[in-house]
Design a protein around this nucleic acid. Structure first.
Lengths: 349, 349
DNA sequence: GTTAGCACTCGTTTTGATGGAGTGCTAACA
DNA sequence: TGTTAGCACTCCATCAAAACGAGTGCTAAC
């Protein structure tokens, strides 16, 4: 059996309708659908075919049809193809986003937090954004300051003005002068390098030069490593609108809702999920039901987009909703958001 | 009508039972209660009295009784009185907490986050901890570093090793030397002072001394102010176990659950609530139902405890649960936690 | 003052009946 | 051969009535 144009039209009609109402849709409803002028009986025949092809199912004998994951997938694929084409004007969203982003560029964290909020409010789904990981970002600057004679404040600045600080204790006594010298030494050797470029060779050389203060070098290198390591569990995840989940009864039933909300609160699992998802691709991606191979998400769909701030500074935006989410709108919104980000951050650099 | 010992015993029996089951408790249940050997009929009479006194009510004519807010209050008050006395040994909790706290003292944030988690897991209620506000904390150290000729990295360290950084742009050109001088100037003038002690007089004097670089002084003072201001909306709130709310049906019904979870996600409102609650007192406090005068919390009780890390560095821990929460356990846990914190942090100082 | 007993109340659960939405199939039609 | 009308059938949702049971208040006896 093949999927001719009419079947496809009926399928999309079913899906569209189901996206809106969340109720199984019957043959009569589709028959009244403006574009095709067919009786309900004909539609019924076609529906039987579509069911045989595994694109739709009926929850019980005398109910309408709902799309299967496979059906959704087909639908989303057609959307993805069209995506290359014209993107309609997005009014409200854009202006709102612009505002947030322009406001204060160096406070990335705040920006992401707010972005999550806006996305959630606009889409009515749950939003998650994984904070930028510093993968392949270059070290810009290391600042050492002596707090007490054996306590050292280490401030690490990476490209993109990401700042991290650590407090370390060392066993050797330090004077302001030695700290200054060490600082100079470290900066000369390391600034401009990415984590990958800092080899063991460089480190040993540094230690040698530092002489009796090699311990300090070690401590600093530790700090740099933990600060710039991308998989570090500390990768922040910003969420918003988790409670939107309650708006979709199909997610509320059973323990899934609790589980989801819980995940959105603890964030750790979400971060892992997000990282596992963005499989290198740059574009928008859609995961339907079990396509994430995450038990918890089996009744959800996730739309993700990768973003990039400066070079090497990247993260993922994810929107979680029911399978009957408004893919068109979500994908569109994410697409524009992505463009905005690229535009603003790449112009700046 | 007065509350004799027997009535009190019956009341606590009712409350205890209701805390466990969450169901209205009838006279027969209490009559079987080991301590008092009375028939259900007698209990019924007493119950009628207790109802008249406004301590219990029946949800409908042929149901058992449940405590009113007033009843809870009475019960909690007796608990509070007993509290001064012996605190039983808390095994698991203590050891768990100890571990967390000792681990890494300077990462206060991480510690609080984990503490919230443990509390939530131990109590089965939702936990919130307002991060320490720097009220009256003294400035320890200011570090200025030149990033580019007009970009300044400001790192502010306050007592308790709280570190904040800001990036600022200035319109004057700066050289490393001037930055060093300014840094020296600022530290000499400001270190050891609390936010209140930094008067306009000091600031103007500084600006004068800085001469053409007065703008830098201004920028730094701004940074200090925002970093150390206690009401700054940025006061972090750590939460955990929000989904525990689902465990209590009386909170689940209606939109309240959603509202609560939402509040736990957005955190901002929670922070305000927490701050509004700790009315200066140091001990454990209990708010039942409308005692918080927060619409959202009308079906909840909140137990709070103030904690103090070093001097001036304080925040509040709050546990949110249904009115029928296990006050005894929660209060006990908070009490020990508080003691642990005091012990560890005050010994250190 | 305490207790046994009884009539009564009222929410909860069970049961059964009804209606409606939707289907599959068959037969007629173009 | 594809489309349509008609009909019997299925199954869920809704509602009302009935049965149930937990609990009470009151009275009378101890």
């Amino acid at each position: 059996m093949e999927l001719d144009g009419r079947k496809m039209k009926i399928l999309t009609a079913i899906i569209r309708n189901y996206l809106e109402t969340g109720e199984p849709v019957g043959s009569r409803t589709i028959s009244k659908y403006t574009d095709l002028h067919l009786s309900s009986a004909t539609i019924r025949n076609e529906m039987a075919d579509l069911e045989e092809m595994g694109l739709i199912v009926q929850p019980h004998t005398s109910a309408g049809r709902i799309p299967t994951d496979q059906g959704y997938r087909l639908y989303v694929n057609t959307l993805l193809e069209e995506q290359g084409q014209a993107l309609e004007e997005k009014d409200k969203e854009i202006s709102q986003m612009r505002e947030v982003m322009v406001e204060r560029v160096d406070r990335v964290e705040l920006m992401l937090r707010q972005m999550a909020k806006i996305l959630a409010a606009n889409t009515n789904y749950a939003t998650m954004i994984s904070g930028p990981t510093l993968h392949q970002t270059k070290l810009k600057f290391i600042q050492l300051s002596l707090m007490e004679s054996q306590k050292l404040l280490i401030v690490i600045v990476a490209e993109g003005n990401i700042i991290k600080n650590t407090l370390a204790e060392v066993s050797v006594e330090l004077t302001p002068e030695t700290v200054l010298q060490l600082s100079l030494l470290l900066n000369n050797a390391l600034s401009g390098l990415s984590l990958e470029q800092i080899t063991l060779g460089i480190i040993t050389a540094l230690k040698e030069q530092a002489g009796e203060y090699s311990e300090v070098v070690e401590v600093v290198m530790d700090a740099v490593a933990t600060a710039m390591k991308p998989e570090a569990g500390q990768s922040q995840v910003y969420t918003s609108g988790a409670t939107n989940i309650f708006k979709y009864p199909e997610l509320t039933s059973g323990g899934t809702a609790t589980e989801l909300i819980s995940a959105f609160e603890e964030k750790e699992e979400l971060g892992n999920l997000l990282n596992s998802l963005d499989g290198g691709s740059t574009g928008i991606q859609v995961y339907i039901g079990n396509e994430t191979s995450n038990q918890m998400m089996q009744d959800c769909s996730i739309v993700t987009a990768r973003y990039e701030l400066g070079d090497g500074l990247q993260g993922t935006i994810g929107i979680v909703g029911p399978k009957r989410m408004d893919y068109e709108k979500v994908m569109g919104t994410l697409q524009t958001l992505k463009e905005q980000l690229d535009q603003i951050y790449h112009k700046k650099e």
